[in-house]
Design a protein around this nucleic acid. Structure first.
Lengths: 208, 208
DNA sequence: GTCTATATTGTGATAGAC
DNA sequence: GTCTATCACAATATAGAC
């Protein structure tokens, strides 16, 4: 029984090591560009073990994709559903979300690319995780009615907010090239965006 | 000589048909996900002909990537370098750029993904096409100095502008899912963005 | 559980007839 | 220029020893 326990622990570790290596490779190269050999090398183990634990490339990818979503959805969910005034909620969302993006800079481009190439691969797991955008849309309308902010279109505003937060990460090579920044300079630039986005957004919605 | 002329014309047509089919497939699936067989099928010809005209998958991809850049850079260049006041230039840029995006909705995600996976593949052809972002950055600073707009960070402003224009195309599946829109509804939504972005941006920079 | 060796299929590329 | 047939290799997946 002791040996069973030890083996189980060992299993978990290897399984986790593989998954992390798979994340690194899949996030960077996507499903089609990733190679099982490369993942095995990155995990410091053998190709056959990948199949032992995850059966096929498809199933390994599925696990990676799930982890990618799980890294982000809770943050979004918490920020969107919190009980606070709209402007405060926006501030909290931008701050938390950009922090998560800095911690996981490759995930957005990965998810977006996989959804673009094969929209059927993951049949919108957003809903299954219970993120409901209507909450924030309703709150925007309420804030307009209460005169807290000027009249805007809630849907466009929501997409604007997401665009400002996510795009600089998704299009990092392009943006970095345009601004002619080094890696360090661009990382700093991303840090600054939390306050810059907030100022930009607040200015654009404040009641006149 | 007549036959030579005719053959030349025929060549050009086949070459062009292949390139267009290759664009369709590469834009959607990326370099790693695209299959030469699929491109041949899409072009209604044979796999061998692809190699006859473009030698290798790499070279065919190169041609596709070039076409993708050429579709966009002139519009950006013209808009950025035009001789007009900043606010007017911004308006023109948003309008023209979103129109080009609507006409070529898959290109941004394609370019971004390829630059993300292999930053070396195309060694920043932006510069080779002569797009210089410093023009607009300088103009922003001048407008601030002249009191036309409130004090903002030019670099963040430029990235904000690009984010608002491009992101809804790059992340279409995600955004469409969040807003729960049909294809027709989302296409309409993209059309509306021209005025929405402008209003949003102008409000955020206008002198107080 | 982990490895080596191998089977099997997929895919880019070429040869050669027409 | 265009096709069919085929090569050569890459990549996923499995078999079987330890």
């Amino acid at each position: 029984m002791v040996s069973e326990l030890i083996m189980t622990v060992t299993d978990r570790n290897t399984e986790e090591i593989i998954l992390e290596a798979a994340c690194t490779i899949f996030f960077q190269k996507g499903f089609a560009g990733a190679r099982m050999q490369e993942i095995a090398d990155s995990a410091g183990i053998n190709k056959a073990l990948l199949h032992y634990y995850y059966r096929s490339k498809d199933q390994l990818f599925e696990a990676v994709f799930n982890r990618a979503l799980i890294s982000f959805l809770p943050t979004i969910k918490i920020a969107l559903e919190a009980e606070m005034p709209l402007t405060q909620k926006i501030a909290k969302f931008v701050e938390n979300y950009v922090d998560v993006l800095i911690a996981n800079p490759h995930i957005p481009a990965f998810v977006i690319h996989e959804l673009n190439t094969d929209p059927n691969r993951v049949v919108l797991k957003l809903k299954s995780h219970g993120v409901d955008p209507r909450i924030i849309l309703r709150q925007v309308d309420e804030a307009i009615a209460a005169g807290e902010i000027r009249a805007i279109n809630g849907e466009h505003f929501l997409i604007n907010l997401l665009s400002l937060c996510i795009f600089p990460f998704v299009a990092r090579p392009v943006a970095q090239g345009i601004l002619q920044k080094s890696n360090e300079e661009y990382t700093l630039f991303l840090q600054q965006r939390k306050s810059e986005i907030l100022e930009f957004v607040m200015q654009s919605i404040k009641a006149s």
